[in-house]
Design a protein around this nucleic acid. Structure first.
Lengths: 124, 124
DNA sequence: ACATCACATTGACAACCATCAATTTATCGA
DNA sequence: TCGATAAATTGATGGTTGTCAATGTGATGT
């Protein structure tokens, strides 16, 4: 019971093996960074492209169609104006998640599966 | 060559089989939404939690340590002030990506692998 | 009770972001 | 060359976000 009281108000077992109750050294150090600052900046930029519901739906339109999708088919189902859709698509393209291919008057978008795989890898 | 010129300035093969050159029907329709608006809102909220380099590094500190990490060990390596780290950790907790456990003076964080798995699933 | 410590909250500010109307740019058919 | 069309850009606006100094809150040991 004194043991459990100790546990409740102290650093965990692993830490308690090597440290004292001195607040300065209360905590076991975390491991070396898995992500350096440059990697974190790049990844954050990619995830930011996914951090908007409209962009997620636009991307889902594209990934759920096996091939390409015309920009003209994204405006109406997204419920946003043409300039807004163009703005969001630019963000997805700049993040490398989709490619843009202009042919004549129309622009065609394709998902970039390798890029989505890379983001998946970071999460697991 | 006339054939390729056509290809270059027209909708793709699949579309050309069923449509005319009338601009109104120029494009093959995208498939039904894979993501409805409610799902998109929730997912965007989760990805927004990952859309900051500091939060990605904080999360990586936690996931790269097998067990828990003390909040007191996150301030110095993140290079941000204590209130700023507290702010970012709240965002990660609210997004369900980490859990918060206060024991005595210290707060301990743990990753929530199921939640990271869920986000991974969306990307693949 | 009191001083101390870990962490959260508040308040303020600058930077960034989503959105749309209006306009511009690029491409096509005639 | 001209009119029409798809998409990008511009400019403006309201809302959100990252940051820190100062302060508040709750737990601890004495």
């Amino acid at each position: 019971m004194a043991f459990f009281d100790d546990l409740r108000y102290s650093p965990p077992m692993e830490a308690r093996k090597t440290i004292t109750l001195d607040p300065i050294s209360c905590c076991a150090p975390v491991r070396a960074d898995a992500l350096d600052e440059v990697q974190a900046d790049m990844l954050a930029h990619s995830f930011a492209a996914l951090a908007d519901p409209i962009r997620l739906r636009l991307l889902s339109f594209i990934t759920s169609s096996a091939g390409e999708v015309c920009a003209c088919d994204l405006v109406e189902p997204s419920g946003r104006s043409q300039p807004t859709v163009s703005h969001h698509m630019k963000i997805l393209v700049d993040a490398g998640l989709v490619t843009r291919d202009k042919r004549g008057l129309w622009v065609w978008y394709r998902a970039v599966p390798e890029r989505l795989d890379a983001l998946r890898a970071v999460l697991g």
